[in-house]
């Protein structure tokens, strides 16, 4: 279970972004953070990953399956993060992107198997710049999954996809990540699975 308690985020100038935010997400559950641009949705994900920009102050606690992660360095939190552009490393092939995410060396067969699973067979040696947005989104998710994350954070992962592709990628995403807690940032209500919890940011007393 991913647990955030009493999270407050603000700028050094005193301006407040998020105040007193608490939530719990069980394994297999989805929490959707909704809100207009600038309401702090992505900043909450940055806080969970431990990558808040310098000059932003925060308080609160973060637990993952009972382990306190609040002051744990980003690289030891064991989380997965999927961004809207996929953020595939441009100097690596698709296979190298996957291998970079893996916890141990991936054999060529393992890479092929992973790619087949995502309908991306034969693309191992492709340059990320030459594949479509939907394919990029799937590779990005696969790269996150091979890192064996204990929770997955999704920052508007479907927003750059066209309508038809969105449904496919949504289904792929929710199926592939169903074993772990998931936090989704979106401004599109259609991205949110029916069973998800919802938190609206930007209209708090902050």
């Amino acid at each position: 279970m991913l647990e955030v308690n009493n999270l407050s985020i603000g700028f050094a100038s005193g301006e407040c972004l998020v105040e007193g935010l608490s939530f719990q997400v069980e394994a297999g559950g989805v929490l959707a953070l909704l809100g207009p641009s600038g309401s702090g949705k992505s900043t909450v994900l940055d806080w969970i990953t431990g990558t808040l920009a310098p000059g932003i102050q925060s308080s609160g606690s973060l637990h993952l399956y009972g382990r306190d992660l609040t002051d744990v360095p980003t690289e030891r939190r064991g989380l997965g993060l999927v961004l809207q552009d996929g953020s595939l490393f441009p100097h690596m092939s698709i296979a190298e992107n996957l291998a970079f995410g893996a916890r141990q060396r991936l054999s060529a067969a393992a890479v092929d198997e992973l790619l087949e699973r995502a309908d991306l067979g034969g693309m191992a040696d492709r340059d990320p710049a030459t594949i479509s947005g939907g394919q990029r989104a799937r590779v990005s998710l696969l790269r996150t999954l091979v890192s064996e994350p204990a929770a997955v954070l999704l920052d508007e992962p479907f927003s750059k996809l066209d309508a038809e592709l969105r449904d496919q990628i949504r289904a792929f995403t929710w199926t592939e990540t169903e074993a772990v807690p998931r936090v989704l940032v979106t401004h599109d209500a259609q991205d949110i699975p029916a069973h998800a919890q919802r938190i609206q940011l930007g209209d708090s007393a902050c």
């Binding site: 990953t49 064991g78 997965g80 993060l81 953020s87 790269r143």
Partner: peptide
Amino acid sequence: DHWIKQGRVLGYSASRCWTRLVLPR
């Protein structure tokens, strides 16, 4: 910063993110 964040979330130290993600480019 963007690539270091990606690499760190995948479990690499900031220094390794530099040497493996940023410096080659």
